[in-house]
Amino acid sequence: MNDVAKIEAPLLSVDGLVRHFDVSAPFLNRLIERLDRAYVKAVDGISFDIGRGETFSLVGESGCGKSTVARLIVGLYQPTAGSIQYEGVEIGPREAAADRKRIQPHMQMIFQDPFASLNPRWRVADIIAEPINVRGLLKGRAEIMTRVGDLLSQVGLSPADRERFPHEFSGGQRQRISIARALAGEPEFLVCDEPTSALDVSVQAQILNLMKELQNRLGLTYLFISHDLAVVYHVSTRVGVMYLGRLVEWAETKTLFENPRHPYTRMLLDAIPDLEMSGRQRIPVAGEVPSPINPPSGCAFHPRCPHAEARCRTEMPLPRNYDGVHVACHAVADGRIG
């Protein structure tokens, strides 16, 4: 399906993944006020592969469903439909619970908020030792503590930090502890949900560098979720752009940023503030993201799209492969835009 897949089987493969959330009013209200059940289509049929050792990024505005994808993959949510395969093993549906349990230790997750992702009552040593204990990787307190110390040094902290509590650390240091905890389970696949968006820029650089270094050293594969295009450009091998629960375009990072095809990708790139001070004016985009409870018909982007025509309002565009660039857009398919 994509270039990496041709060379070797993908590590993770997602196909037609759907997750709807029930946001209906309570039963009595529905009965008396004659309301229908309402669903948020947070993820509405997306497919992609992630090759071993690469960093695949999902980027999009708030509410586009990128975090939901992350949580579906690590099993925090059950998919409504579709499949998630890890090394060819199906782990998506509820029936695959046994396989999920077997595969689960291979993946770990890094969260956005370094102030909420560590249990405030636990010492750092216990936090990092938890995956080791759960997986039974090591026996004996002394051995585990040595390993915790190693992990702390790996992420740039001191083994002496074991005895401290999370509140004694700054945001960046806590994110390092989070990473150490994720690594403790010896995973091959890390899902990073906005790992730097709560951090200051100078600290963000430290964390991004650390993540890259760990990837090189340990051969990790990342699924990276972010709203920040510059960060995504910096870390990813391939990028997927999401809009209202769907992938509208995905391609190699360089290709996507140099030659964006989908009108939404172009819009996002145009909206980035210009640090070069080249005098380029940001193109203010018209309109806002519609509600995912009641998304527009046809192509969800059509109300904001400068290239929309009648067909876009009625028919949902399916992603098509243009030399490794996947785009879901009628205008691109018709050759109306590059």
Partner: peptide, 13 residues
């Protein structure tokens, strides 16, 4: 719904 509980779930506790 705090992330440390989610993290524990991902770890498989």
């Amino acid at each position: 719904n705090k992330e440390y509980v989610l993290a524990a779930r991902v770890i498989g506790l």
